[in-house]
Design a protein around this nucleic acid. Structure first.
Length: 874
RNA sequence: GGGCGAUUAGCUCAGUUGGUUCAGAGCACCUCGUUUACACCGAGGGGGUCGGGAGUUCGAAUCUCUCAUCGCCCACCA
């Protein structure tokens, strides 16, 4: 069989994936094995795969695949999120492109368009994940708006309402004028912006005097209902009880006093606009002020503003500033920086708005959710993310859950009248009718007499139930799946949705199941470009994931992503990482080609070197395996990969294979061959979670197998005790390195066989001499008693080595080398002896530390002696 | 304004309770190289006073304080 020089991922990856699918290897059903479960953070239906998904899902796949190899019943549940506001925005945009306005559509028609969109694009991202190699149980794919999940959401809403935790009320909320909906606090992003502070003169009613207020939003003066000063402010004591006139519209408003006002800021006078600022709203309540809402839902000024009606708020700001200036009301303008809230989705500037919305009080739910993270029932990686979590949970506010959108879960409130409380909450319309009849005593009420609340629920009100609802934990709480898979094991997600999602899932988990939704949360970092910038469409710095997969192979990209992505750290992505991943694939492939190319003969003699190589590699493999397992337990995935990488590249390829490699045109002993295959298979097992494709391919080709015998459902290597030879072998690596250096320094070709002569220390081992001979191309190693004339020499430990040299040896240079070495050793010895002569060190330090220093002292002394001897003999 | 965290080789990062192999890894860089897999390779090599300063200690990258710079989260100062 002629093997290609490179692994052809284009040709093979998708075929391998198909085989896994055909064999149904990703599918899981409850059985007697230990379950291992991950639920995917459901990507938005509208989404296409970006680098963040790549990182996140690669990590999940690594964890799932390893669990599978460990013999657990691994189940990774995929799915998508309906993403209410994000999807609706896209659908609206598409309709606009077709010349259709949302406002001209009925709710029903709009929903049809939205479902069309979902069917069209909803599967895209999941298909893309398959290219990455994601081993999700696709039979279990769920969607947050599908019937069963949707029913769960309704049930929870009804339940929380009945418990008094959900309520409807008028509150100051974050209003997104672009999407024209209320938002939760978490959906508002505060950014520092450059703005202007306008100083405006308000006339005191009935007097010539003016007072000056400072505001960043001059357009809101049209909604002013008071001026407020601090009662301690001596500048304004005389204004108590007086009134001021709002410029331009001439409205008379009271001048009130409140400690809230900061004497230092601006002029110490605050204009109060209760409808458009949360603090002003509070002041308004306290002082019983009227509230004038001057804004329409789309951010234009309303009739109540009296002026500039119908114009956008920012346009008004420009114009009103000019008008105020022209009329001499504007005293001055200062530049300043302040924080402004922006909508996470639409980037529109948020307006605080008094509005009737649905809220969820989470104070009680937060208690167990906080407690079980703090006590480690649920572990966070990295651990310090717990602090952020704790702070938020301790200051939790009511969650505004209603959205003025259509695409989403419609609120199950049914109105039978126009009064604020003329509604019932029910899981179905039929039940609503019953309840309405009971409540009103009107037996004649029909379904058509009821009107369902128009609002939908925040997307996260669906997603917070995800780990429960994907296993039908609401529909059928006692079902086998739910009992078996819940609580899930690990959640892999980005820290920016800790509050949106993670915290709320934990709350829902305890509220509804009395159990955590997962045991570990792994927070990935953000994927940035090599200049640390966020990846964004505008910057065009986000590579196309599918393009990368096609260029480097899924294995290469996976390795590239994980090579430098410790938990919580941002990943500075550049394509060089994929190069490295692809090179690694190539290295493994070629190791395979090498092994496959060997002629194997039953009668060939097993070499000493091959036996020693086998013993040593077994030991070094075990050492690495222990490290790898430990790092998995700590979720140090990139460290796992790095250990595996070095184990494969350095230990397996550069050392082990070089050792067992048969001599030119000689066959390899069958026994040795089987050892090589066994070690290679262990390497493949360890690499498989990271590089599922190429390892599977080699697994199939390395030895004759049934095609159904897939590596992905094979076993993880077992940790066992191995001969303790690693340390000893390391010193031989040093010797080999030394000889190679001499070859290089003296320009001696590898083809020229060298002789090595040694004056050995009594205790020196000769165990791996054959290895040295093979790897450095020596004639032999000869043990001698006296120095060898005209040779290149060096000292290792307490041994003197000589390599006879055909040319004249530069004695002066050799002497210098020795002197330098002696100097270094003496300096070292000095430091050690200084330590040992310090009684406080000897008395205080642990015995072992002192003993070690003594050993270092003895070793250094011995070495110096040998070096001096050699110097003298030159 | 409050809180959390970081600062170690050109880059990205390890460094567990202070003391063995404590100054490390990968990449990048330099030199040489067609040695029976791989130039997507091999062999060899250079490179850091562990952000600055002070302190505790026999001993500090590691503990304390302080300064500087940079992140992240939270917060209603117009």
């Amino acid at each position: 069989m002629e093997l290609p020089k490179k692994y052809n991922h284009i040709k093979r990856d998708q075929a391998i994936y198909k085989k896994w699918m055909d064999q149904n290897l990703f599918h899981s059903e409850p059985d007697e094995r230990e379950p291992y479960t991950i639920v995917i953070p459901p990507p938005n239906v509208t989404g296409v795969l970006h680098m963040g998904h790549m990182l996140n899902n690669t990590i999940q796949d690594v964890l799932v695949r390893r669990a599978r190899l460990l013999g657990k019943n691994a189940c990774w549940v995929p799915g998508t999120d309906h993403a209410s506001i994000a999807t609706e925005a896209k659908v609206v945009k598409r309709l606009e492109a077709q010349g259709i306005k949302k406002s001209n559509l009925s709710r029903e028609d709009f929903m049809k368009h939205a479902w069309d969109w979902t069917e069209e694009y909803g599967g895209t991202i999941l298909t893309q994940l398959k290219r990455l190699g994601a081993s999700c149980d696709w039979d279990r794919t769920r969607f947050t708006l599908e019937e069963d999940l949707s029913n769960g959401v309704i049930e929870v809403f009804v339940d929380l309402f009945n418990k008094g935790m959900i309520y409807k009320g008028v509150r100051m909320v974050n209003w997104d004028p672009k999407a024209q909906t209320a938002l939760s606090d978490e959906e508002v992003i505060h950014k520092e912006v450059n703005s202007k502070l306008y100083y405006l003169n308000y006339q005191i009613e009935g007097e010539e005097e003016f007072l000056t207020i400072a505001t960043t939003r001059p357009e809101t003066i049209l909604g002013d209902t008071a001026i407020c000063v601090n009662p301690k402010d001596e500048r304004y004591l005389h204004l108590k009880g007086k009134r001021a006139i709002v410029p331009l519209i001439g409205r008379s408003i009271p001048i009130i006093q409140d400690e809230y006002v900061d004497l230092e800021f601006g002029t110490g006078c605050l204009k109060v606009t209760p409808a458009h600022d949360i603090n002003d709203y509070e002041l308004g309540l306290k002082h019983n002020l009227p509230s004038i809402d001057i804004l329409n839902d789309d951010g234009t000024l309303s009739e109540k503003a009296e002026l500039y009606v119908g114009l956008d708020r920012f346009e008004v700001r420009k114009q009103i500033a000019k008008e105020l200036e022209a009329k001499g009301i504007l005293a001055k303008v200062e530049d300043m920086k302040n924080k402004v809230g922006f909508s996470e989705r639409t980037d529109a500037v948020i307006e605080p708005k008094l509005s009737l919305q649905w809220f969820l009080n989470m104070k009680e739910m937060a208690k167990p959710a906080l407690e079980h993270v703090m006590d480690g029932t649920i572990k966070f990686y990295p651990e310090n993310t717990k602090n952020t979590y704790k702070h938020w949970m301790n200051n939790i506010k009511d969650w505004c859950i209603s959205r003025q959108l259509w695409w989403g879960q419609q609120i199950p409130a049914y109105y039978y009248g126009d009064g604020a409380n003329d509604f019932v909450i029910a899981t179905t319309l039929e039940k609503a009718v019953e309840l309405a009849r009971e409540k009103t005593g009107k037996a004649e009420l029909k379904a058509t007499d009821l009107r369902q609340d128009e609002d939908v629920l925040d997307t996260w009100f669906s997603s917070w139930l995800w780990p429960i609802s994907v296993f039908d934990g609401f529909k059928n709480p006692d079902n086998e799946d739910f009992k078996y898979y819940y609580p899930t094991n690990d959640l892999v997600t980005a820290p920016d949705i800790m509050f949106f999602w993670v915290a709320r899932m934990i709350m829902a988990g305890y509220e509804y199941k009395g159990l955590p939704p997962f045991k570990n949360v792994y927070y990935t970092g953000m994927v940035r470009d090599e200049k640390r910038r966020k990846m964004s469409k505008q910057l065009g710095n986000s590579p196309d994931p599918i393009g990368l997969i096609e260029k480097y192979g899924a294995d290469g990209v996976r390795v590239g992503m994980l090579l430098s992505a410790p938990a919580g750290n941002d990943l500075l992505f550049d394509e060089g990482l994929c190069d490295q991943g692809r090179n690694f694939s190539n290295k493994i492939w070629n190791a395979f080609r090498l092994v496959k190319g060997w002629e194997v003969n039953e009668k060939a003699e097993v070499s000493v070197v091959a036996e020693q190589a086998n013993e040593w590699f077994t030991a070094i493999f075990q050492k690495n395996l222990a490290e790898i397992n430990a790092n998995y337990d700590k979720f140090r995935i990139s460290d796992v990969l790095m250990s595996s990488y070095r184990l494969t590249w350095d230990e397996f390829c550069s050392w082990y294979l070089e050792m067992v490699k048969p001599d030119y045109q000689k066959p390899l002993a069958k026994k040795t061959y089987f050892q090589v295959i066994a070690h290679f298979e262990n390497i493949l097992r360890v690499l498989n979670p990271f590089m599922p494709f190429i390892t599977e391919e080699i697994w199939q080709l390395l030895s004759e197998r049934e095609s159904t015998d897939s590596l992905m459902v094979n076993t993880w290597p077992v940790e066992e005790r191995a001969a303790d030879v690693v340390q000893e072998f390391e010193s031989y690596k040093k010797l080999i390195s030394e000889i190679r250096t001499i070859r290089k320094d003296k320009n001696i070709s590898f083809k020229d066989q060298l002789e090595l002569k040694v004056i050995a220390d009594q205790s020196a081992s000769t165990r791996y001499d054959a290895v040295v001979i093979k790897l450095t191309n020596l004639k032999n190693i000869e043990y001698v008693n006296t120095k060898v004339e005209n040779s290149l020499s060096f000292v290792l430990g307490a041994n003197e080595y000589f390599i006879p040299f055909a040319e004249e040896v530069d004695v002066a240079a050799e002497k210098n080398k020795l002197k330098e070495e002696i100097n270094y050793q003496e300096g070292f010895l000095n430091a050690v002896e200084k330590k040992l002569s310090n009684s406080r060190f000897v008395d205080n330090a642990p015995e072992q530390v002192v003993a070690n220093e003594k050993k270092k002292q003895a070793d250094a002394q011995a070495k110096i002696e040998v070096l001096k001897k050699q110097l003298a003999s030159l």
